[in-house]
Amino acid sequence: MILEAVMLSVKSGTEQNFETAFQQASPLISSMNGYISHELHKCVEVRGKYLLLVKWETLEAHIIGFRGSPEYQQWKQLLHHFYEPFPMVEHFEPIIGGRGQEAEGRR
């Protein structure tokens, strides 16, 4: 499993439009081969700051499969104009895992 992590800085005043566009874009990413799950989190302290976490089966599922797809072109059209500056995407692989009580309660 690969975790894609992206810190998003959304242009001031466009946060609600971004959240709406992200809801529209979510089915695009979730339809991809190798996709596992995704979450979008809004920062409590900094307006316009979001954290996107996407789980993929493999790195290739993201960088070749999704980014090389027509769905990614739609994703870009819906979302990329909201970012300033444009975000850096990083990928992580698990080393140590665990579950807290809160995570268990949501399942």
Rank of each mutant, 00 (worst) to 15 (best):
M32E: 15
H80P: 04
W56R: 10
F22G: 02
R67H: 10
I64D: 12
L28P: 02
K55N: 14
K49S: 09
L52A: 08
G34Y: 11
K42P: 03
I29E: 07
P87S: 05
Y35F: 15
H81D: 13
F66Y: 15
G48E: 00
T20Y: 01
C43A: 15
M88K: 14
L51S: 12
P87V: 10
I36N: 04
E57G: 06
N33H: 14
G13L: 07
A25W: 00
W75A: 07
V46R: 14
H62Q: 08
L53T: 11
N33Y: 13
Q74N: 11
L78M: 02
L28A: 01
H62T: 00
E60M: 11
S69M: 06
L28W: 00
Q77T: 12
E84N: 15
T58N: 04
S12L: 07
H80L: 12
F66C: 04
T58I: 03
K76M: 10
M88N: 15
M88E: 15
F18H: 02
V44G: 05
S12D: 09
P87Q: 07
L53G: 02
A61C: 13
E39P: 07
P70W: 05
L59A: 14
Q23V: 00
V10L: 09
N33C: 11
E84W: 11
Q24F: 04
H41L: 12
T58F: 07
Q77A: 13
H81S: 14
I64L: 14
S30H: 09
E84G: 09
